[in-house]
Simulated scan of single mutants.
Amino acid sequence: MSDLADRVAARRSYSRVTADAPSHEELLPLVAAAGRVADHSALHPWRLIELRGEARMRLGAAFVKAAGVSGEEADKLAAKPLRSSLLIAIVSVRTKSDKVPGWEQDAVASGVAHVLSLLLHDAGWGVMWRSGHQTRSKAVHRMHGLADNERLLGWLYVGGVPEDSREGHRKTVDAARFLSVLD
Rank of each mutant, 00 (worst) to 15 (best):
V69P: 14
G60M: 06
L28D: 00
L43R: 03
A175S: 13
V173C: 10
L82M: 12
T95G: 08
L182Y: 14
R52P: 00
A79S: 13
L119W: 01
L51K: 02
V37H: 03
A176M: 08
V161T: 09
V140Y: 11
G71N: 07
R7F: 04
V8S: 05
G159N: 03
V108S: 00
V8L: 12
A139S: 15
L182K: 13
V173G: 06
D106A: 08
H141C: 14
K76D: 13
V69K: 14
G102F: 02
G71A: 01
A32M: 09
G160C: 07
V127N: 08
S180L: 14
H44V: 12
H121F: 10
A113N: 02
H169K: 12
R12H: 07
G102R: 04
W155I: 00
A55K: 06
L30A: 04
G60F: 01
A176W: 03
A21F: 03
V100R: 10
H121T: 06
S2N: 12
V158Y: 01
I90V: 15
V64T: 14
A21Y: 02
K80Y: 05
G160K: 04
L28G: 00
A38K: 09
H144S: 12
E54V: 15
M143R: 05
D148F: 04
A32T: 13
R12E: 06
A61D: 15
K99D: 03
L82E: 01
D106K: 05
V181N: 06
S165E: 14
L28K: 13
L146F: 04
A89P: 00
D174M: 05
W155E: 03
E150V: 13
H169C: 09
P101R: 09
M57R: 15
D98I: 10
G102S: 08
L179I: 15
E104A: 07
D122M: 03
A89E: 00
L179T: 10
A55E: 11
A109C: 10
M143A: 14
E150K: 07
W46N: 04
V69Y: 13
R136D: 08
D174W: 04
L182C: 12
N149A: 10
D6S: 11
R56E: 01
L156Q: 06
E163S: 12
R16L: 11
R7W: 04
R58K: 15
V127P: 01
W46Q: 02
G60K: 06
P29Y: 08
W125C: 01
V112I: 09
G124W: 04
H114L: 14
H24P: 09
T18Y: 02
A61M: 13
G154I: 04
A32G: 09
R166A: 14
A21L: 07
M143K: 04
A19R: 15
G160E: 04
Y157D: 02
A107T: 13
A175Y: 11
R56F: 05
E26H: 12
A62H: 07
A79D: 11
G68R: 15
L30H: 03
P22S: 07
S41L: 06
A38V: 07
L120P: 06
D122H: 11
L116M: 02
L119N: 01
K99C: 02
T95C: 12
A55D: 10
S23R: 15
F63R: 09
W129D: 01
R47G: 00
K65C: 10
G168N: 09
R11S: 06
S165D: 13
S97D: 00
E73C: 10
E50G: 02
A74E: 08
